[in-house]
Design a protein around this nucleic acid. Structure first.
Lengths: 120, 120
DNA sequence: GCTTGACATCAACAATGGTTGAACGTCGAG
DNA sequence: CTCGACGTTCAACCATTGTTGATGTCAAGC
């Protein structure tokens, strides 16, 4: 059993995930990613950090907040396996499609029938 | 040909759309709804205002910004007809589903193949 | 072992999407 | 005509999602 490796600095994660270093720190503060600290108080992330950030960025596009994303990621174990990522992906896609479906339903309800969105 | 009736006050639109009066003013400032002014400088909205706001609220849930929603509403004529609302609804649903599809695609790309989201 | 770049914290700023409060104007029912 | 409910503007404030800059520390290469 391999122990999870916390080896990556803020800058490395930033480069891998395509966001600014300040954003990496922000995401850590808000529970999207987690870090351990070195003796000198520097953050060290594991390999999943960059992935989490890339997933978070696409999830934000469908209206999920940082908090919601962090909550979904809470189901990920340290050193997540393919199946773990698959479940998270399914959860995110399901949420996105539920919102799209809700939009469709609301619009259909508003624009149907005699009243047409409460317009005469 | 009926002339569009601008008869509703901020409070009436707020009550009909289920948002605060401050939000109604905010939406007007940002082009989601439009108003004429009375002699005494009070806003008067037509019947579509409450509908626009209700649609805007559900659209926000799928990640559209106020600006994007206002842009889509820009296609609505004054005194919109059912077909006009239908086109707006189609645009919104298409946008929502495009975002959901993008999420699905990105996640599939990240989580597929040998590398699995760049994890070993 | 010293320098230099990357890291640390903290506060301030920015944009989005509003809410709240102060101070004042309008409108319609009595 | 007056009174209260509702309207007006403006500035300040809140949360979210970050960025920027000041100031200071750490660590890796020379």
């Amino acid at each position: 059993m391999t122990v999870t490796a916390y080896t990556k600095s803020v800058g490395e994660v930033a480069a891998e995930s395509g966001v600014a270093a300040s954003a990496v720190r922000f995401y850590e503060q808000h529970g999207v990613i987690t870090a351990v600290r070195t003796q000198g108080d520097q953050r060290r992330f594991d390999d999943s950090a960059a992935c989490r950030i890339r997933v978070a960025k696409v999830a934000q596009r469908v209206g999920l907040t940082i908090r919601e994303i962090a909550d979904i990621f809470a189901a990920l174990p340290p050193d997540p396996q393919p199946a773990d990522w698959g479940r998270v992906a399914d959860t995110l896609v399901a949420e996105a499609e539920a919102r799209a479906a809700a939009l469709r339903t609301h619009l259909a309800a508003m624009c149907s029938g005699a009243r047409l969105c409460d317009l005469a």
